[in-house]
Design a protein around this nucleic acid. Structure first.
Length: 275
DNA sequence: TACTCGTGGCC
DNA sequence: TGGCCAAGAGT
């Protein structure tokens, strides 16, 4: 469950080291539930999308309160937990408990789009038709379905990749609808995520400052970083230089600061901010 | 449906 | 060197 949360939009190689130390520190849901959210967010480090850390923490608390500290094994119970959507609920059901559920992630969607539908890419967002297709393709038997989910995901992750698929090494190349159709181009151009100057970049820079701080910081560290380093000798916060360089407009700074507070990623007390 | 939300490795 | 994009969820 922890690894699935971390793997939501984050590559395996970056998750592995964080996951190992995380599991040593908080080996059970009760351990994590009892931790301070500030420590949870700090331990999340630079994995990205830190709200996932908060949701994992909240999920651990829900497991303690409603499931006697045991991760539920049913898709329905899992889906009801904070931060657990259809993919994560299915993945835990299948890969942790060996149960039967239809796992649909970006890899599996891509494999289905190509091998079955003859398209270069799946639709922009998960459709009901894709879900129906995935359910229809999956074998009936329990054991076979578990293998099917794992195998299809691995095929998409390792061979049928987004950019340069290794069709020569693909076990189903002879029956791939996309290859048979002559590998037609995608019917849309994926829009890359903007980064420079975005709220996301600024939020990330603010979070980096908060993670590095050893205690509550004057809120001006985040709101007016250009002048904030003058009167706070006890703190060594390298990430502040980064935040300064962004030189973000005031309205954006306010918006992002308020966002961090309302998301629960940062807390303000007596004019000071902390995780 | 279409957005938002982090980060860093890679071609 | 800089876009691309990676085991999504919530709104």
């Amino acid at each position: 469950m922890v690894s699935e949360f971390m793997l939501q939009q984050t590559p395996v190689v970056r998750v592995l080291p964080i996951w190992k130390t995380w599991m040593e520190r908080w080996p059970t849901p009760a351990d994590l539930a009892a931790a301070d959210s500030s420590e949870v967010v700090r331990a999340w480090g630079r994995l990205g999308y830190p709200r996932r850390a908060l949701r994992l923490h909240a999920a651990a608390q829900a497991i303690v309160e409603k499931h006697d500290g045991q991760v539920p094994a049913s898709y329905e119970d899992l889906l009801a937990l904070p931060g657990v959507g259809s993919y994560t609920a299915a993945a835990i059901t299948v890969f942790a408990f060996g149960g039967r559920a239809t796992v649909i992630d970006t890899n599996i969607r891509r494999v289905h789009a190509r091998a079955v539908l003859g398209k270069a890419l799946p639709s922009k967002s998960l459709t009901a038709a894709e879900t129906r297709l995935a359910e229809a393709l999956m074998p009936d038997g329990l054991e076979e379905s578990v293998l099917w989910n794992a195998a299809t995901m691995e095929l998409g992750a390792l061979i049928c990749t987004a950019k340069s698929p290794q069709c020569e090494a693909c076990p189903v190349q002879a029956e791939c609808a996309w290859i048979l159709a002559g590998k037609p181009e995608p019917d849309y151009v994926p829009r890359g995520q903007a980064w420079a100057g975005t709220d996301r970049q600024l939020r990330g820079a603010m979070m980096a400052v908060l993670r590095e701080a050893t205690g509550p910081l004057p809120r001006d560290f985040l709101l007016s970083p250009a002048t904030a380093d003058l009167k706070y000798p006890d703190e060594n916060v390298p990430a502040l230089e980064n935040l300064k360089k962004l030189n973000s407009p005031t309205d954006q700074v306010i918006r992002c600061y308020n966002g961090l507070i309302s998301d629960g990623l940062a807390q303000e007390r007596d004019g000071k901010v902390s995780l």
